[in-house]
Design a protein around this nucleic acid. Structure first.
Lengths: 145, 145
DNA sequence: AAAATTTATTATGCACGCATAATAAATTTT
DNA sequence: AAAATTTATTATGCGTGCATAATAAATTTT
């Protein structure tokens, strides 16, 4: 009777739910989920070139740019010009940014620890493999004939 | 060497990629992914009460309301007052809405068919089970102690 | 029946991911 | 070297998901 959810619907709902949870968690210290993810990719010691960030996050550079602006406005990062290449920018964390990065790290660690604790390790391995395969299929546009 | 992606990162990237693909596909006929999902949940014969839609999509009613407005503006749906309950609204498809619903259906069917074709059935079953379990854990807030 | 609560819906502000377009610096072609 | 192309970045508009708040109808409590 119960019409089963399709794979895409399942992933959509799962991701929306995780987003909501992460945003609730981040709201406790004035953050957001997206900002949390960006923070994690920035090297707290030497900073990270803007160019490198977008692919690490699987996003478009244009999307990232907007979030970096928000982060700058919030005092989490600052931009440093690259003297070797006038186009590129190095993203560095402020002290406040470093602190919030730790909070974000904690959230991600706690989430993944809980999942690892509550879901069978072998099943989780399969889940990861299928996800990775699916991601590649989609990114390579091997889905619609 | 390669630091592995965390589960949440993997789901995030996967969902962002699928979103992009679906939106590309929907753009071909003037649609969007979100609208496509809503269309699929509306009964083309008798319509569907607004109340029922949000939970079917795993969204907040407030989020849905905005998309329904967009859909009304685009001529995809119309609202009909429920004479039994002055608060509730019945959502019905226009002819154009019905047509676009078929397009959306096709996209979802094609996507899921491709996945079923390219990924091992047993692995996919595990993937679905893990996704469902994870969704429940998150929705029941059993993640952060 | 009146008052308080619950339920259904809409409006608005915020954040964000993408597309398109603009700008500017570097690289390649000629 | 000048012109054309590529690469890095930012700005802006659109759609959308959530939170908060407002409104109104129904239900429950008193």
């Amino acid at each position: 009777m119960l019409k089963e959810k399709t794979i895409d619907q399942l992933i959509r709902e799962l991701w929306m739910s995780i987003t909501k949870l992460y945003n609730e968690e981040a709201a406790k210290y004035g953050g957001t989920m997206s900002i949390g993810y960006v923070l994690l990719k920035i090297d707290p010691q030497i900073g990270t070139p803007s160019t490198a960030l977008a692919p690490m996050l699987g996003m478009e550079t244009t999307s990232l740019s907007r979030t970096l602006k928000n982060m700058e406005d919030k005092g989490l990062i600052f931009r440093e010009k690259n003297p070797m290449d006038g186009r590129s920018v190095l993203i560095k964390l402020t002290d406040y940014g470093c602190q919030m990065r730790e909070k974000s790290k904690e959230t991600v660690l706690n989430f993944n620890a809980a999942i690892n604790e509550k879901i069978d390790a072998q099943d989780l391995e399969v889940f990861k493999n299928v996800s990775t395969t699916m991601l590649d299929l989609v990114n390579e546009r091997k889905i619609f004939k």
